[in-house]
Computed example of a mutant assay.
Amino acid sequence: MTAVSDTPATVVAGVWEALRTVRDPELDTDVVSLDFVADCSVDEDGIAHVRLRLPTYFCAPNFAFLMVADAWDAVSQVPGLADVDVELIDHFASDAINAGVAARAGFVHSMAGSEVGEAVDELHDLRRTFTERAMMAGTDLVVRPLVRAGTTPEQIAAMTLGDAPDSPDLRRLRARRRELGIPDGDDAPLVVDPVGRTVGVDALPLHLRKARSYQVGVDANTSICRGQLAARYGL
């Protein structure tokens, strides 16, 4: 077996990169940037050990379950690992979540009989809802600079993704659309609703106000979570 000190740096780096693909579904930000990764290592047997933490003891268990499950899935794809151990710490539902994710049991089965309470549904719809909100918020981040630069509503309504200046925000918007099954190529309309329908010039003002409200909510919740995490762990 390879000693801990000899564990290839590329494997450890790969685990961290995998974790950067795991997002808090409400904040649409990866768990590494949010400092939700309390510990990450690869031992001499090639087992990745990841410990996740959240801002409060009572963070919503459905969101927590999604992050732990997504982390397990992402890290499992890293070449060079023999096994993966992902654990949520310091959370009231951690035992049920950790056991459920390790058993690949799904959210409903994981919560059944636990102290957390029964779960009614799996989390597919919840995931899509927050991905739709992330797409709307991303629309605000891409379109607002265009408005500030003097682009008219008529011009925005006629624009495609390829017409918008390339930026990290545009690339993230494309990614969220891709996750939702909405066209994200250069010839796709820039502004669409959460099911992919083009938003015309008449409906554009209300649509952009809604998009702005989602982004304001994400910014506010992210700030709160960062503050709570820092206070909780003395960061």
Results as ranks from 00 to 15, higher is better:
F63E: 02
L81S: 08
D202V: 15
N62H: 14
R174F: 03
G138E: 03
D140I: 04
A13R: 12
R212W: 09
F36L: 14
R178Q: 10
A69T: 05
V201H: 06
E17R: 15
N98G: 05
L206R: 14
T151L: 09
L170S: 04
A102F: 04
A102Y: 01
D95Y: 07
E26V: 08
F58Q: 03
P168T: 12
D85K: 15
S213Y: 08
L146Q: 14
L126N: 03
P25Q: 11
A164C: 07
V147A: 11
V68D: 04
L170H: 04
T29Y: 03
A38G: 12
L208F: 07
A3V: 02
V143M: 07
A71R: 15
V108H: 02
R212M: 10
D83G: 15
V199E: 06
H49K: 12
D193C: 10
G196I: 02
A18Q: 02
V120T: 15
R174E: 02
P183C: 09
A203S: 13
S223G: 09
V201F: 06
V12I: 01
R127Y: 13
P8M: 02
L54H: 04
R133N: 12
V11Y: 00
F130I: 01
G80I: 05
A119S: 10
L204P: 14
D35A: 12
S167V: 11
F63V: 03
D28G: 05
P165S: 07
G113V: 09
Q155F: 01
D125R: 15
R128T: 15
V4P: 00
V31C: 11
A71I: 03
P25G: 06
W16E: 02
V191G: 08
V68P: 06
E44N: 08
D140R: 09
K210H: 07
F130M: 08
S94I: 01
A69K: 13
E115M: 15
R226Y: 07
P168R: 11
L235G: 13
A103L: 07
R209V: 15
L88F: 08
L180N: 00
V4Q: 03
